[in-house]
């Protein structure tokens, strides 16, 4: 009977719609409660916004330099008067990120073999490696920097160590996961020939994962350049120190100049790393 089939369909369709609508209403209610709670706790209300918005506009207005067309060169030179010093600090920031990425990835390279289920020499090694890298990547790098600044003194060194420790945690996980996805046939082959653990890793695993690792390392370097730029906020070197000084001492035009430098550097490094990554992946796909 077509009529009853239709009726059954209509009924179940209505039921389905009701269930969906109930879920949507429930979600919306939950959301409203969360939003209201957050607004109260975060002191987020129209009054503070109305008060804050003009201040913000004024602040942004002040950071913009006076650049006139007829004095373009002079005005730009005046705006970027600290360029030599800032460029040196930018280079320092990049070098910090480079060294931190190198140290962290070297650590992650070692820990990655122990943290992958298929390669680890013992189960307790696996759990230890996984927990250590989890701890290192969950504690924010800036917190490590705050603590290291007390232990090692002000300067880039504690910043580098903090970023390195964080990179070790983050890349330790990625490397271990890459290791778990390898083809195990070469490993078994070398084991059958009587190779020891180190030889097996070197000749069966490393050739398979090197392109993957390289791409992860490049990606980490991009992230670390951004992080190194803020390490100066806690006295751990790089361009951040100069930015904090400019913000705290109300050198408005310096703020915009330094920000532009940071954005330019970060984008250039992102573009360069992306090209390199594509080249690496392309080569991998060919072989």
């Amino acid at each position: 009977m077509p009529d009853t089939t239709l009726a059954v369909f209509e009924r179940s369709y209505a039921e389905l719609r009701r269930a969906r609508r109930a879920r949507t209403v429930l979600g919306l209610l939950l959301f409203v409660v969360l939003f209201a709670g957050s607004a109260v706790i975060g002191n987020f209300n129209p009054a503070t916004l109305v008060e804050g918005a003009p201040k913000l506009g004024e602040y942004v207005g002040r950071t913009l330099p006076k650049v006139r067309w007829d004095h373009l060169i002079e005005d730009l030179a005046y705006w970027f008067y600290g360029l030599p010093k800032w460029l040196d600090l930018m280079v320092e920031t990049i070098l910090m990120a480079y060294l931190a990425t190198l140290l962290g990835s070297a650590g992650a390279f070692m820990i990655g073999f122990f943290g992958s289920r298929n390669l680890t020499p013992a189960t307790w090694c696996y759990h230890l490696a996984r927990r250590v890298s989890e701890f290192f990547r969950t504690v924010p790098d800036l917190v490590f920097a705050l603590i290291f600044v007390f232990a090692f003194g002000l300067g880039p060194l504690p910043g580098i160590l903090a970023i390195a420790v964080h990179s070790l945690g983050a890349n330790g996980k990625l490397f271990a996961e890459a290791n778990e996805n390898i083809d195990m046939a070469p490993v078994e082959g070398l084991r059958a020939l009587g190779a020891n653990w180190v030889q097996t890793m070197r000749f069966a695993v490393v050739p398979q994962i090197l392109p993957n690792y390289a791409s992860y390392v490049l990606w980490r370097f991009e992230i670390n350049v951004r992080t190194a730029a803020v390490m100066g906020f806690v006295g751990a070197g790089g361009i951040g120190m100069e930015l904090v000084t400019a913000v705290r001492s109300l050198y408005y035009e310096d703020i915009s100049a330094i920000l532009i430098l940071i954005v330019l550097t970060v984008s250039l490094i992102d573009i360069g790393c992306e090209k390199l990554r594509h080249a690496l992946i392309g080569r991998e796909a060919l072989t």
């Binding site: 201040k55 913000l56 942004v60 906020f233 705290r248």
Partner: peptide, 12 residues
């Protein structure tokens, strides 16, 4: 860092 200067200390 910038917003703290612009709108004051606090969660906003």
């Amino acid at each position: 860092l910038i917003f703290v200067r612009a709108v004051g200390l606090g969660p906003l």
